[in-house]
């Protein structure tokens, strides 16, 4: 039997792992898919472009875990759902945004949606639980950050001298000195970007078959779900 975990362990580099997994495709699609999944699970895999390449299109569309694999990679690369869904749509991969589902409920009913959200509230009824989901968006905020060492230079110059010449009282000499201090500071700054998540204003109810204590309130999650339609509150 093909040992996908052992396969992925040979290639700690995600890009190399995916390329090697791809080589199994002509031989066994089953082994190639197991190898690809192992690459995503056991390497810091963020290569969404390689994953949605034509080579894997059939696998991603037909296998039940295809959408989950894509969702996991979107999360691993930071969870920028809006931008990554745009990449998936260029390849006609059917995972949609909450915004699309809300705007055309009939069109998207039963379809996959991918949402970045925080859990606001949790209600349980027997085994089942319902989560209040608050959709989050990422925006990039930049600020200047000092790079490396800052140099501070302090120089003191003292000038002394005498000045001679004619004055109204006759000839004379005036002596004096001038002290000058110069301070300078050199620092190099670069813009640094931080991704701040904030509420989009969209909310949803998320149904879970069983209670899950790991879905904690106040943290962002990348959630893959089926859109069941709209419900009047």
């Amino acid at each position: 039997a093909f040992d996908a975990k052992a396969f992925a362990a040979q290639f700690p580099n995600p890009a190399v792992c995916e390329r090697q997994a791809r080589r199994y495709l002509p031989v066994s699609r089953e082994n190639a898919w197991s190898a690809l999944k192992a690459c995503v699970e056991s390497t810091p895999f963020t290569q969404l472009q390689a994953l949605i390449d034509r080579a894997w299109a059939q696998e991603l569309r037909t296998r039940p875990e295809g959408a989950a694999l894509l969702a996991k990679v979107v999360a691993q690369r930071g969870g920028s759902v809006e931008g990554d869904l745009r990449l998936l749509h260029e390849r006609k991969l059917p995972i949609f945004s909450l915004a699309s589902a809300v705007s055309q409920p009939d069109t998207y009913k039963g379809r996959y949606v991918l949402v970045r959200a925080q859990v606001g509230d949790m209600r349980s009824e027997g085994e089942k639980s319902t989560l209040w989901l608050v959709e989050q968006d990422l925006t990039s905020v930049s600020q200047e950050v000092q790079l490396g060492t800052a140099y501070r230079r302090e120089s003191t110059f003292t000038t002394t001298g005498d000045v001679g010449g004619q004055t109204s009282l006759g000839s004379g000499t005036v002596g004096g000195s001038l002290a000058q201090t110069e301070l300078s500071r050199d620092a190099v700054t670069i813009p640094a970007y931080d991704n701040i998540s904030h509420e989009t204003g969209r909310e949803a109810l998320g149904r879970l078959a069983s209670q899950d204590p790991f879905l904690e309130p106040g943290r962002d999650f990348i959630i893959l779900a089926r859109f069941d339609g709209m419900r009047t509150t």
Binding site: K72, G78, G79, N195, A204, G206, I223, L224, D228, G229
Partner: peptide, 20 residues
């Protein structure tokens, strides 16, 4: 009244912090 989308959660993941 107002309506809210209902989702059946399939799976979820913790987003990795983005490094730019």
């Amino acid at each position: 009244g107002p309506s809210i989308p209902v989702l059946s959660i399939v799976s979820y993941y913790t987003p990795h912090p983005l490094v730019v």
